[in-house]
Structure formats: C-alpha cells, structure tokens
Design a protein around this nucleic acid. Structure first.
Lengths: 228, 228
DNA sequence: CGGGTACTTGACAATGGTCAAGTGTGGTGG
DNA sequence: CCACCACACTTGACCATTGTCAAGTACCCG
C-alpha cells in the first residue's frame, strides 16, 4: 500500500489538505523494527515524533532499580513521542516495540512548518494530545486511588468491551507486560488472577480469560474495596 | 488592569495577532471565587476552559471512598480544563480554588473558531498540553516507581530551586494538600517529615523547612526534576 | 528435544494506610 | 484582649496490601 494512502487513514491526518498530505509523504521516514527494539530512551534528544503503522509499541519508564511502568501501548494509527516537539527537547519516557512493527517518523522541523500552515493538522494534534492526557489521568487515578485487583478488573472489563466479547477476553500482551501496565509485578498479578479464579470470578487458560461474574468485576473496578 | 493586558501576559496568548486578542476579550468571562469553591467536578459536561488570573486552583480526583489525588496546582497565567475541548465532552477530574482566585473562562465554541483562524494560538495550546503531559508523566513515575520519602525529597528540592532559596523553603500549600499532591495522606507525610528531621536532613518549623543536607535529599529524589 | 523465557508459588518483610486520640493554632466574637 | 472553637496537624498502635527473594514449573521456539 502506498504511503500516501496509509497516512490518509490515520486520524492524525484526517481532513488535511491534499497538498499537505503530499508534503508529509515527502518528509516521512519509513522504518521496520523487530520485536524488542528500542525506538528512543527517556532523556534522549528528540528530533521528531512517530506513528505506528503496524505492530505494537510500548511507552514506559524505569525506576532507578529497574522496575518498569508502562504508560501506554500504541497500536496502528496511533502517534507517540510528540511531547518534545512542543515542550522541552527530550523524551520524558522510553519506547520499544513489543512485536515486529512498522513505524513512520516525522522530523520536527518540517512538521512544525506544516503545522503553521494547516490549522486542521494542529487541531487534530490537539485532539491526540488531549486523549493522551485523559488516558494518563485515568492511569494516575488507578495507581493512586485503586488497589491492584480493581485495576485488573477494570482492564478485563475494558478489554471485553473493546473487543465486544462479553464472556471471554484474550490478552493481547504478555502477563508480565500487563503487570507493568497495571503498575505492579508479575508475582502479584499471578496471585490475584489465582484469587479471582478461586472466587469464581474468572477462569484463566493461558492468555484466554473467561469472565464468569462480569457483574462483580464491574463493581470492583469502580474502586469499592471488596473481598480480598 | 485591563483584561486585554492581562491576557497579553499569558503564555497561552503570546504572539497572537492583535485582532484575535481583541476577539478573545469579547468572549472571556471574568469571575472571582472565594477559597474552597468548586469550579467543576469530574464527569461534568464541559462548555469551555479556564485560565487562572490570580490565586491558586487545584485539579484533583477522588477515590470512591474519599481519598484525594491532586494532579496539579495551577497558578497565575496557567490554563486548565482544556482536555474536554478536544477530546470527549466531560472533565476527567475536578477543580477547586485553594484560595480566593480570579479566573477567566473561555467558551468552547468561540475559542475553537479562533483556533482555526490563528495557528499560533493552536501551537501555543499544543505547547501547554505537552507540558501537562510531561508533568503527568513525572507524576506517574513518582507514584509508581518511587516511595513517598523520595517524592517528598524531590518536592523540597524542586521548591528550593524554583524559589532560589537553597537552604530553606516555605511551603505554599497546606501540608494536607501536599500529602494529596504526593499521593499519600497527612499522617504518612507527618511521619516522614519527622523521620527526615531526626536524620538531620531537614528542620521543620510549621511551613518553613530548612534543608540541612541538600546533597542527600537530592540523591533520594534521584534525578531531581519534579514539576509540580 | 533442549534451552530459555515466561509464569507460578511460597515464605517473608516493609511500606504505607486506618483508626483513634491527642496537641496545637489562628481567627472570631464576647 | 482573651477565650473558645474549628481545623490542621501529630502521634501511636495496628494491619492490609504489595513487593522481595528464591525456587520451581510450563511452555514456546528453534
């Protein structure tokens, strides 16, 4: 598929003038990375931002002693690494592929020029950043105000809603990565999955999780402290 | 002071065309609120966003059982509540004055129209949102990857840098609010202040805190930059 | 089939939150 | 000017949640 058409499908570039889309295709850098490749590291000088074409990219931070907190996992059509474009010059977090991924890179200079020319591009970008702010707000809410079981319940409900599979979900990331996304460690996640199973809330078979009591899971995810 | 001049000083409106600044003065709603007044609550429908002219506003979330997590405290010249302007229609968090404050409110409709007309306004807004993203990223890093003493140390160092008072800082918010900003509760904060005192790191006299061992505090905070 | 990674399980420790009871302290009204 | 009240903060005893360390098991890929 042509680069031009791929970009036309990305929300970030919706409603752009044809001429500007063409200009973008001229400045974009197309790259394909294997699984587990580093795209940038926290603190790195930034010279542009990225969009996922295919695959999955995690954006995360590391504590001094190595614990990882995933901020977000980006899939096809989603942009990441925009913050240094507009504030400061370095990345506040790190990015790495979770699987073989195709990535578009947009150099800062050229992109900023285009931003000033096409207001819809700027407004799209504002929408993108706002969604990320909302997202991070939720993450903070979860980390600070809820316990791990609530976060897990919320994630399961979220997955089942997203994939429209009310009674069963399939994790699209490894359990260890899920732990990091939920702000905990694999051991704790494992124990909680176990506990939920023995309480008849779920049934775990590898990455497939059956939601036996969606009702209770939904209540837990609201944050109320229940039986644990 | 004239509204026009006040707005001219706000980073958000820097570099705007004179004509557009004038238009803004026509749509702005000027209001003054006493201490502890609610500006909006999480989940509320949003019809615009806000800028602090004077005073202090906290943006925060509440857990179902009442624990509060402050996301950020906004001072003069800072904008808040922009997320629903561009993504979804409701506020993800709540806002309340910490002291008597003067606030400008910008209605969504008129502001969006202006955004499409003046690219520098859009770019300023991108910068504002990006800074907030960076900030929330740090908050998440702290909540998830550091313990409370580290967060406190980082906050003290941050304050002393910000106010350029290397050996002593004056808290500009109540200790209870500081606890909520650091993702903990007053009791825990109190104990940690105590511990740091007995370790000879600091000396506490009400809201005045003497930094006796800046070196160690800096090491504890690991990385330093904190942006509350 | 072998080797490494991912995951699980157990015993333990510690961080931080809960509850309850003080101790200021500032502001207001008598 | 002082007494009092409300509110912010402190302190102590306790314990729940979660992380650490150390093995052990399952499972996928070559």
């Amino acid at each position: 598929m042509r680069i031009r058409d791929l970009m036309g499908q990305m929300p970030l570039f919706h409603g752009l003038q044809e001429q500007h889309l063409e200009e973008l295709t001229d400045i974009v850098v197309d790259q394909t990375l294997g699984r587990g490749q580093t795209i940038f590291s926290g603190g790195d000088e930034a010279s542009g931002f990225y969009v996922v074409v295919s695959g999955k990219v995690k954006v995360f931070m590391l504590s001094p002693d190595g614990k990882e907190q995933i901020l977000h996992i980006f899939g096809p059509g989603e942009a990441f690494g925009e913050v240094p474009m507009f504030a400061g010059g370095h990345f506040p977090a790190s990015a790495e592929t979770l699987e073989k991924s195709r990535i578009f890179f947009f150099p800062r200079r050229d992109f900023l020029a285009l931003l000033h020319k096409d207001p819809s591009l700027a407004v799209n970008m504002l929408a993108t950043l706002s969604r990320m702010l909302r997202q991070l707000t939720r993450l903070i809410e979860n980390l600070s105000l809820k316990e791990v079981p609530s976060r897990l319940a919320a994630y399961l409900i979220f997955l089942s809603d997203r994939d429209k599979t009310p009674e069963e979900v399939e994790l699209d990331i490894a359990k260890g990565q899920l732990a990091s996304l939920l702000g905990t460690i694999p051991e704790t996640l494992s124990r909680i999955l176990n506990k939920m199973s023995s309480q008849g809330l779920i049934e775990v078979q590898g990455r497939r999780i059956r939601l036996l009591d969606r009702q209770t899971l939904a209540e837990m995810s609201e944050g109320g402290k229940f039986l644990f």
